[in-house]
Every structure is written in C-alpha cells, then in structure tokens.
Design a protein around this nucleic acid. Sequence first.
DNA 1: GATCCGTGGTG
DNA 2: TCACCAAGGAT
Length: 374
Amino acid sequence: MAPRKNSSALDDLDIVGLRRSLLDWYARSGRDLPWRRQTDPYAIWISEIMLQQTRVTTVIPYYERWLTRFPTVEDLAAADLQDVLKLWEGLGYYARARNLHAAAGQIVGEYGGMFPRDLDRVMALSGIGRTTAGGILSLAFNAPISILDGNVKRVYSRLIALEVPPSKALPRLWNVSDRCLDPDNPRDFNQALMDLGATVCTRHEPNCLLCPWRESCRAYNKGTQSVIPMREESNPLPHKRIGVAVIRDDRGLILIDRRPAKGLLGGLWEFPGGKIEDGETVEECIRREILEEIGIEIEVNDHLITIDHAYTHFRVNLQVYNCRYLSGEARAIECEEIRWVTLAEIEIYPFPKANLQIIEALKARAVGSPGDRV
DNA sequence: GATCCGTGGTG
DNA sequence: TCACCAAGGAT
C-alpha cells in the first residue's frame, strides 16, 4: 500500500483525548465574558467584529455602549453612519464600523432582520471572513465550523511545533483546526481554544504547567514553546511630518473636514493639513495644503501642540498651528465635506485619536485664557 | 499574495 | 524607549 500522500502533523495525536481535556479545562477555567451570556447572533456578531485585532479589556466598554445604543440589527440599519462612527471613535480600524452598518442593511433588506445561519451567506456579509463567520455560527448556533484566529494559530503552531511563521502555513493550520474541532461541542470547543490561547498559551512566557495539552504539545516536549510561533517578517515604519491647521474665522468658528469614505480613517472628521515636503517650513506647508485642499488663504499664527502618533504602517509627527481665515470661499476639494463649527459642537463629530488631543488642547486654552479670541 | 487598515498594552 | 503584538478582512 502506498504511503498516504497527505500525512498530517496530527497523525500521532489522540484527538478525542485532546477534545476531552480541553473541554474539562474550559469548564474549570473558562472566562466569563459579556457576549457569552446569551446566544443572540446580533450581539455575538458585534463582539466578534470588535474583537478583531483588539483586546478583550478594550472591547468590553464599547460592546456595552453599543448594545445599549443599538440593541437590534434594525436599530443599527436605521442609524446614521456618522453616529455609528462616533460610537466606534477610538476603537480603530474604522472600516469595521462602516462594514457593520452596511451588513446590518444587508441583513434587514435581504433576510428580514434574521441573521443567516448558512456559512456562505454569513461570509458574504461585509466585514465577515472565515474566522469571524465560524465564531458567530459556532457560538450562536453551536454549528460545527472551525476558526483560526490569532489565539488558535498560536495554540496549534505550538501543538504541531510549526517550523515556519503561521502566515506561511495557513492551509495546514486550517486543516488542523478542522480535524481537532469537536463536532459534538463546537461552541464550547471554539471558545475553549480561544481562552486557552488568551490565558495559558500566551505569546510571552506561556504557562505550560497549567495547559491541558501539555503532554501532547510538540513545542513543549521540545522546549521550543518560547520561539513558536515563528516571527513574521516586518519592515521599518516610515515617518512623516504633518502640518495641521486650526483655522478660525472672524466669528471664532473652527474649520473641520470629513475624510473620504474609504481608506485611512475613512468617514472621520479632522483638522485639515498635509505632509511637510523637503525644504519647506511648517508654515509654508500649512498655507499650501489649505489652499490646495480647501481653497482659502490663511494666516499661520502660533504653535498649538505637537502630537506623535503611530499607525500600523507609518508614524506621524503632527505640528498643529492656530491659523486665521483671510480670504476665499472654503470648499471640499480633497475631502468629502467641510464645516465651520464651535468648540462645543465639535463633540458631535467622530475624530481619530490623534485629533482628539488637538480638541483637548483647544478646550484647555479656551478655559485658561478667557480673554482669548475663541 | 502582499499591502493596507488604529489603538493601547507590554516586555 | 520602542518594536512587537492583540478574537482579521478587504483589495
């Protein structure tokens, strides 16, 4: 008989035993999380999206606020996107909020508000991929669908002592996840797997002595658990200096603009500005950018604040200056929309984190200098 | 398949 | 201080 072509990394492991020991561990040591207290697919969907690339402790207050404000998919579908983004403000990856809003429309429009149970239909919703779909369907409906999130990649990479970074072996890891999943207890199994990765099989200093899979884990048995999973390649972050304008007109109103709907910080509001080119002063940059983007002449006055901020693929240094409107009619040339607002009205608009520091600085200055022109 | 997309915690 | 990273998906 010919050797099996697809011999798996799991061939020597007792999968039934692994399932039982993990579920036993989960019954004793699983986490009590807000979205596990019910099986409403809408609430579980919201939690799964918020948890993408985001820590549990960060998500919990956002999750609670969201379910209070938008208790049902109909509430979300009927909401204004700006209000959705405002509720998401500070959580990052804002496409997630835009996709939630769009998918709510899909669910209400195509499925009468009933969350679909079919994997292909769930994955067709905006912002839902294979892992999120598996998470929702297994948690809400106890459907036997595997997942492969960051926790699961780490746990299985160690279990099979994977010799390459997980991104180089996704088909193998999905195969492991499919074969290990307990078809009789998919809900608890998937949750247990994520809890194991989050609390025991952690990135740094995993607590192997508490792990139910210790005896089977190939990394543990080789003593390589601290170097697996292997690191992904990473490139140095580029750095940009940005000139930013807080422009006031003669009435003291402040100019803000809304960024294009897609791309970085899509749909959020900001103070206008742009990249400082080589050989250009900050003041020159700000005057040029405002003329290009908004079409008005301004006077660049005193420095308000400097903000250093790191995004995923680059860092910025924001040089923020108080400016005064001089001439021309402001219009949205390189943005979606512009508005002149008061400092009080600004609270309504969703801003990226780095811009919230500018608003704080403006408020502090307004309080500290009552005679200042506000 | 490589790149883009935020923010806060951490060693 | 700073690179790395944490419940991924879209293009």
